[in-house]
Amino acid sequence: MSEYVRPAFAIVFPNLGGIAGGFLTRKAIPDWYENLRRPSWRPPNYVFGPVWTYLYSSMGYASYLVWRDGGGFSGDAALPLACFGTQLALNWAWTPIFFGAKKLGLATIEIGALWGAILATIITFHPVNRTASYLLLPYLGWVSLASCLTFNIWRNNKDRTD
């Protein structure tokens, strides 16, 4: 049975932070975010929930593959899982910074650090489990888009916030 429980836990765990962030985001979108100057190329709001659910689930499964194939937290997976934990913490921190504190400049810096942490995770996952590293590529792509969006919103709203 544990052959199903461990991957299921790994998939659900990253989504918990996403769900918590969703509550914060939901309140800020109509009251604050919709009044910001945003680029025309931004994805529609309804896309974010399904995309993040997919990304959190795939990153969770990737972490399980590395944990399984790398000998857990004390084997070859120790550094890759530390990188994973770092990027996950940075991921979860972005929403309270951007939507909660409304610190657009800080959110721009933070998402840059997140992007670097995702890249480090991909690089360290690769020797342990290539599939796990490849599962994170859409995540890096999405955070690249989100980084450009965050920077653009900060640049176009500096006079309103921060």
Rank of each mutant, 00 (worst) to 15 (best):
L149G: 04
P96N: 07
A146D: 04
A117V: 05
T131W: 09
I109E: 12
F84K: 08
M1G: 10
K158P: 05
Y46P: 10
V12M: 11
A132H: 01
L24S: 10
P30Y: 08
L135M: 13
L24N: 13
E34Q: 15
P96E: 07
P44V: 12
Y139N: 06
V51E: 08
V143G: 00
K158S: 08
H126W: 15
Y139T: 05
P80R: 04
V66I: 08
H126F: 14
I122H: 01
R130D: 14
G70A: 11
I153S: 00
A132G: 00
Y56K: 02
W154H: 06
S133P: 04
S58Q: 15
I109Q: 14
V51R: 01
L65F: 12
Q87T: 08
Y64L: 02
P43Q: 15
F13G: 01
G60N: 09
F48K: 10
W115T: 02
G72K: 04
Y4N: 08
T108E: 11
I19V: 15
N157M: 03
T131R: 12
N157C: 03
S63I: 07
Y4V: 12
R155A: 15
S133R: 02
W154V: 01
L114C: 06
P50N: 04
S57L: 08
Y54S: 15
Y134D: 04
D162N: 08
T124W: 10
I97T: 06
W41K: 07
Y61K: 09
C83Q: 05
T161D: 09
R26E: 13
E3A: 10
R37T: 15
P44C: 03
S40Q: 14
M1H: 12
L24R: 11
G18Q: 03
E3V: 06
A113Q: 10
W94A: 12
L104Y: 12
